[in-house]
Structures are given as C-alpha cells and as structure tokens.
C-alpha cells in the first residue's frame, strides 16, 4: 500500500495546484456560509422553535441549500481522477509501473477524501460560533461529521467510477451528477410515496440519513449503506481500469 500512499500524495498536490479546487472550496464556503447565516437569523427571530433543533442540526443536511451544491460539487471534485490521466496519457505511465489497480484506485479515493474533508474544515467555524452563544452537544456534532464522512465515501467513490468509465472529464461529471442526482431524488421520493416501497427509498435517502446523524442518531444501517455503495464503486472502478487493458 506504499504505492497507494504515493499516488494519494500526488493526487492531493495535483488537486490543490488546479484552480478547480479553490473555486469549489470558495463556492462551498460562500453557499454554506450564506445558508448558515440565514438559519441563525431565522432561529434568532423565532426563539420559540427551541427543542432539539438548532442552526447546526438544520445546517447538516436539513435543507436543499446543503444538498444542491454538494450534488454539483461532488462530480467536479471527482471528474479528473481517471479521465484527466487518460486524456493526458499519464495513465499509460501509471499502468505500466509495477503498481496494481487496487493500489491506484485506493490512492485516488484517498486523495478525493482528503479534498472532501477539506471542504468541511470551514464548517467547524459554525460549530464554534453556535457554541459561543448556546449549547452545542459535541456528540451530535461528531455524529453529523460521521454522516458527512460516510456520504463523502459514497459520493467520491461513485464519482471516481464515472471518471474511470467516461471518455472525458466533462462526461464523467455529467454521469456522476446523473447517478447521484437520481439516487438523491429516489431518496426524497420517500416523502411522497405511501406504501412498502417507502422503506426501500428511505434506505437510499441521504437526506433522512443525514437528519438522523444531525440529531445524534448513529444508525448502522445508513453506515452500512455507505460502506456497501463505496465497496461496490471501488470494485467496479478496479474492474473498469483493468477492463481497459483488454479492450484497449
């Protein structure tokens, strides 16, 4: 796994030497900051809301302002992983080194996760702000970030798979957006469907997963859902990379 680490280091460096990373980071800070501000403002104006709700629970996955940007940013964050190396030809150099596909895919997923985690560092500021003016349950904060981490693996691994399959970065981004968008939409369908199907939809619904995590509820079903989705995308990415050797 030394090779995976080597690849991850290079990928992270490459992420942050491209303007895309900074555009995504700034855009996310802007959008999330704006939504956080709105929530604080709303809670300040409606002190009676009280209860278990506070700006943080609402911030972590409680509104569309949280999900919409992420559904757009996740594809942008992962589109280059394989597609760029294929276009520039460096994938040929990588795949003719004494390094296995599993190490390559591991390294790239690690790098995407570093970027994903970087995206959430500024949100610690919101936790700090709320803690200064009210009570923050650290357990709830921890479970919120656990949910974020799970969704990160899920989103980044599927974006990586699309990048390995698509002929170009832009196609990879569109495919990722479609796949994640479809799953997201299927998830929120649980609020409009009233039959047995509802439970199945709830299983894939990141929105309701996140509202559990944001309340401090760590449901292992959701975590195993993320683990399964990540493992599946990981396996398929490894297959996609080796399949290209045979097909050319």
């Amino acid at each position: 796994m030394r090779a995976a680490w080597t690849i991850a280091k290079r990928e992270v460096r490459s992420y942050f030497s491209s303007p895309v990373a900074y555009v995504v980071l700034l855009a996310w800070i802007y959008v999330s900051g704006l939504s956080f501000y709105t929530m604080v403002y709303w809670f300040a104006g409606n002190p009676s809301t009280g209860g278990s709700d506070n700006p943080l629970t609402l911030f972590f996955g409680g509104t569309v302002l949280f999900w919409l940007p992420l559904l757009v940013f996740a594809p942008v964050m992962t589109m280059r992983l394989f597609a760029q190396e294929r276009t520039s030809g460096t994938l040929e150099a990588l795949l003719t080194s004494p390094v296995g596909e599993v190490a390559i895919v591991t390294g790239k997923l690690m790098a995407a996760m570093v970027f994903w985690i970087t995206l959430w560092v500024p949100s610690l500021l919101y936790v700090w702000i709320v803690s200064r003016y009210g009570d923050v349950d650290l357990g709830t904060v921890a479970s919120s970030y656990l949910g974020i981490l799970g969704i990160g693996f899920f989103y980044m691994s599927w974006g990586m798979l699309m990048s390995a399959l698509a002929p170009s970065q832009i196609v990879a981004a569109i495919l990722t957006f479609l796949v994640l968008g479809l799953l997201f939409t299927a998830g929120i369908m649980q609020f409009v469907v009233y039959d047995d199907f509802r439970e199945v939809l709830g299983y894939v619904s990141v929105w309701s997963h996140m509202s559990d995590f944001a309340k401090g509820i760590v449901d292992s079903r959701w975590l195993s859902f993320y683990a399964t989705m990540t493992a599946l995308a990981f396996y398929l990415t490894v297959r996609a990379v080796s399949w290209r050797r045979v097909r050319g």
């Binding site: 490459s14 030809g89 994938l91 040929e92």
Partner: peptide
C-alpha cells in the same frame, strides 16, 4: 510512451 505523457503541473 508515445507523446511523453508527464504531469504538467
């Protein structure tokens, strides 16, 4: 390889 692919950045 053909075209000498290198990491530009």
């Amino acid at each position: 390889p053909e075209g000498v692919p290198l990491h530009e950045e």
